[in-house]
Amino acid sequence: MTPKQLMNDEEIRRALKRIAHEIVERNAGASLVSLVGIHRRGVPLARRLAAMIAETEHVQVPVGELDIGLYRDDLHSRGPAPILGRTILPELGKRVVVLVDDVLYTGRTIRAALNELSDWGRPSAIQLAVLVDRGHRELPIRADFVGKNIPTAKNERVDVQLSEIDSAQDSVVIVQED
């Protein structure tokens, strides 16, 4: 089946803009906020959100990146050694950390990210921002900021393309898997 587009670049931009506003509103400004993108596509999304917040609030929000590869609970049943990204985090103590990822699905990635963050420090709060929530949670986890809720079937795959990583125009597509 041909992939069906669910969001184009303009819709992604507007969704992120709204999330940036909501983050600022929810935290009464951005002075205590740090953004942490989850590898891989959460990282450019966090950077974009930081740029949008800088534009409206004139605050340079610290941006970090988190690779959860070593915290996965399915490592032993996965294929050959997945390449690991780097984990580079700003100071977490007394900050509101907003985790950023592209797609929220089972919640297991977020569970791993929460465990990893707590090994690094003790933020005053952790919030979650995702571009797409596709449902099918396997853990009691929900997002604080959602770009778009997309009902999906389990045999479908949601692919997010971002210009920074995929050298293609931004888009969210849904693909039917066999």
Binding site: D67, L70, Y71, A81, L84, R86, N115, D119, W120, G121
Partner: peptide
């Protein structure tokens, strides 16, 4: 080469506040 890349990330862990991951 892929092992060298993994080793680079592992070296980072040894400089973290908690020098341990649950892998």
């Amino acid at each position: 080469r892929s092992l060298l890349t993994i080793a680079t990330q592992m070296k980072d862990i040894l400089e973290r506040p908690v020098k341990q991951v649950p892998t």
